[in-house]
Design a protein around this nucleic acid. Structure first.
Length: 136
RNA sequence: CGAUUCAGGCAGACUGUCGCGGGUCGGGAAAGCCGGCGCGAGGAAAGUCGGGACAGCACAGAGCACCAUACUUCUUAACAGGAAGGUGCCCGAAAGGGUAACAGCAAGUGCCACAGAAACAUACCGCCCUGAACCCUGAGCUUGUCGAAGGGUCGAAGGGUAAGGGUGAAAACGCGAGGUAAGAGCUCACGCGACGGGUGGCGACACUCCGCCGAGGUAAACCUUAUGGGCUGCAAGUCCAAGUAUAGAGACACUGAAGCCUUCGGGCUUCGAGAGGGCUGCUCGUCCGUCGUCUCAGGGUAGGGCGCUUGAGCCUGCGGGCGACCGCAGGCCUAGAGAAAUGACAGUCGCCCCGCAAGGGGAACAGAAUCCCGCUUAUUCGCCUGGGUCGUUGC
């Protein structure tokens, strides 16, 4: 099953075009300490995939080792909490791209990262279900 | 034992669970499949400051310009690095240590504020010499608006003088003596400095040596001399190449649009077009072509591959050298990503600090991006090893 807690290459957004599309068409919501941008997209050529992009700006963290630390914590927390997104995606056979942009200026602990990413995932699920219930 | 200083080293370890990037082996038709094994940040990975390797472009040779370097020798692939040494300056009682834009202003040119007479050949004051004129005295005889000689508290003018005064950051090598009209390296002793020679040293340079000389400073002023330097950087560069558009090649087709009628072959009406070029200036004719479709094609975007880690490599031993470093032998393979892996959690042990103890607290600076050699900066009131110096105690 896809709900296991790995984080392989195909679950990361690497292509420049994909990133441009995500930030151009995606919907944004702020869940401190993140800004979340997500985009549901139907693509029958690939299996159902939840993909992630993490971003920590050089403006907020000047030192490379601090940026690395934040990104690693974010990825670690994400792979623990992404399960609910796979549930709804497999139910509706749809993929989703998510970008997490770190907006705080201090490094939060791993436990806080876990809690906040969980909240972010729940927020995306809630908004998706609300949107799919409204008649088009 | 403590303090201080120099040199070198370390940068917690192990286990479990989950996860990531390469590699490799096995299964599988294959996979974004399954499993095993092994590797996966630093001493500065940092700053990007020097130097190279490598790559592309440029390039006959030489010169000019420009830039860089600048005590010597050695070291190195190379360097503005390093080692050993020289010289000046600074600290120190000494031993010793630190430091230097450390070639040339006795090649040329420029500049040297203010002050001062003068900033490189100049005389303001002062000193000294000559001394017109004037004054005093006045031999003499031609008795004059004469005048030898002498003197003067007067001194036009000319000249000498850099010892003294004053100015300045700096004033004619310093100081003493001789000397002189007064003075002056004019002469002499001592000292300082330049050049030539001698001796020692590979050399920078040194010397209680000899000769000759005395010349302001400034080259982070132009400049001179010597040496070196093409430019750009792995986002270099190179290979494959979807889609879209298309100069080019080939084939086919060929007046265009709208409306109406139709037996679907076509017909009628209206509007627009009938362009351009060659063969002859014009007309005709003819050829190329304009417009459309398809195929080929080249360059090339997205994307992907290579470059990409075996190298001036690391470790150990022996040998050479004061040293930087070099030689030989044996062993080892030690990250290679690409919106960018090297992580998370738990436990045990070790280290440091506080505490009698239970226990509590702490662990810096910081993250590979083509690769090396250096330099610089950051780093725990950290730890370990060795050397020097000083202090205290004991023998």
């Amino acid at each position: 099953m896809m709900t296991k807690e790995g984080f392989p290459k195909y679950e990361r957004i690497c292509k420049e075009n994909d990133i441009a599309l995500l930030f151009d068409k995606g919907k944004g919501v702020s869940v401190y300490p993140f800004r979340v941008v997500y985009l549901f997209r139907r693509d029958d050529s690939r299996p159902v995939t939840v993909r992630l992009l993490v971003s920590v700006s050089k403006k907020r963290f000047h030192h490379a080792f601090k940026r690395n630390r934040v990104k690693r914590l974010m990825r670690e927390a994400w792979r623990r909490n992404k399960g609910p997104l796979y549930e709804i995606c497999e139910k509706d056979n749809i993929s989703v791209d998510v970008a997490l942009v770190y907006t705080a200026t201090v490094i939060h602990s791993y436990d806080e990262m876990l809690a906040k990413t969980k909240k972010a995932v729940q927020e995306i699920v809630k908004r998706y279900e609300k949107h799919s219930q409204t008649p088009r």
